[in-house]
Design a protein around this nucleic acid. Sequence first.
DNA 1: ATGGTTGGTAGCCAA
Length: 261
Amino acid sequence: MKIATWNINGIKARNDVLLRWFDEAAPDVACLQEIKTVDEGFPSDVFEAKGYNVVVHGQKSFNGVAVLSKLPLEDVRRGLPGDDSDVQSRYLEVVVSTPDTSVARIACIYLPNGNPIATEKFPYKLSWMERLERHATELLELEEPLLLTGDYNVIPEHEDCTSPEAWADDALFQPESRSAFKRLKNLGFLDAVRACEPAHHTYTFWDYQAGAWQKNNGIRIDHLLLSSQAADKLITAGIDKHTRSWERPSDHVPVWVELDA
DNA sequence: ATGGTTGGTAGCCAA
């Protein structure tokens, strides 16, 4: 079973690219971030016609996440628990099931960017990460195959970018952001891309600006964290880097795992 | 090179 995550940076601008990638990659489950539309604006009918079940947690203009799955989706949870005043659509949790059994629980995550760090955006990011850690702790007690996947907006290590000094003042590389990510991972998750791909020059995002793609000035910020029960089923993980060179690309590329499930 | 580009929206804000 192939489970993918992709920040598509706007479904309206990415429709053709998204369909092209679906035909090529044929994911069993796709977690999408930054759809930038309300639920009704997502082309669910197009993907239902391709045999996918679709759940959307949208928002006008900003954020918005969706999960598309060939297998039925159950136990759908919209929004990250822990703050009823948080109106941003950044979290969507599902259980992928067959008629007989549940295969995996999957959380589709669009973690706050947090820039600029001198504004309220950075503490919002850190409190969101605390909420994620608390919720993940509860989910791990279920002792089931669990994937926390999406755009984390965190560069975990120095080798996950080309020049760490260039990111020194960025929320994606702050010590608080990185230690929060490490705490989450150390609850008992495997970083699947870290485990399966080279440690250096393995990126999932290249900025539109300043020729970042042409210079391979990227960062690794899209992650698949696997519980031990999911990691036991891990066959391989990969990055569909070539989509970044397509016409009108997202600034992120698809990242995926293949599970023996 | 503290620049540069893209998306959503209809101003600039977010990334």
